[in-house]
């Protein structure tokens, strides 16, 4: 019998249901980027260390390069593209801009999804909790100083209009 090399997957991404035949070895991050054209989720490494690919799968922050697309059958996924709503930025997005928490912006989508996951579960994080929450996200530009400030400001609702 021929080995099965693809599988049908049904997954809800940013509120929309997608049903696709997916190559068995395709990583979730490449499924999102190359097949759904959700290119906001980035790839920064091949060992699961950088967090540029972070998305939220069933309410958990997940590195989408560490999952195969076939593993998310039936799951609900949020990517960076879902963060802003009604034409307005999410408070975290606004806080990142207010505090200059991004330079090149390559780490930013993954960083924001980790931060969102944190605030979804802990409305008043300490600085150490913030640093812990983004410990799996590498930023090569900012030294994290302003990222930590931005997340703290968003938690407190201190963002510009």
């Amino acid at each position: 019998m021929e080995p099965v090399t693809s599988k049908r997957v049904a997954v809800t991404v940013n509120g929309a249901l997608h049903e696709r035949d997916v190559e068995a070895r395709r990583l979730l991050v490449h499924f999102l980027r190359d097949e759904l054209d959700l290119t906001g989720t980035h790839v920064g490494c091949d060992t699961g260390n950088c967090g540029a690919c972070t998305v939220i799968v069933d309410a958990k922050a997940v590195k989408s390069c560490m999952l195969l697309a076939v593993q998310v059958d039936g799951a609900t996924i949020e990517t960076i593209e879902s963060l802003a709503s009604d034409g307005g930025l999410h408070p975290l997005q606004q806080a990142f801009s207010d505090h200059h928490a991004l330079q090149c912006g390559y780490c930013t989508p993954g960083m924001l999804m980790s931060a969102k996951h944190l605030l979804d579960h802990n409305a008043e994080p300490t600085e150490n909790e913030i640093r812990r929450a983004i410990q799996g996200n590498i930023c090569r530009c900012t030294g994290y100083v302003n990222i930590v400030e931005a997340i703290a400001a968003a938690a407190k609702g201190e963002v510009s209009a």
């Binding site: 959700l38 290119t39 906001g40 980035h42 207010d98 912006g105 510009s160």
Partner: peptide, 23 residues
């Protein structure tokens, strides 16, 4: 003055265009 960065709006929404996004 430290005015808001023009680049940010697209980048915080994952709407930047990096080379790997071009198909």
């Amino acid at each position: 003055q430290s005015i808001p960065r023009k680049e940010d709006k697209r980048l915080v929404q994952g709407e930047g265009v990096f080379f790997d996004d071009v198909k």
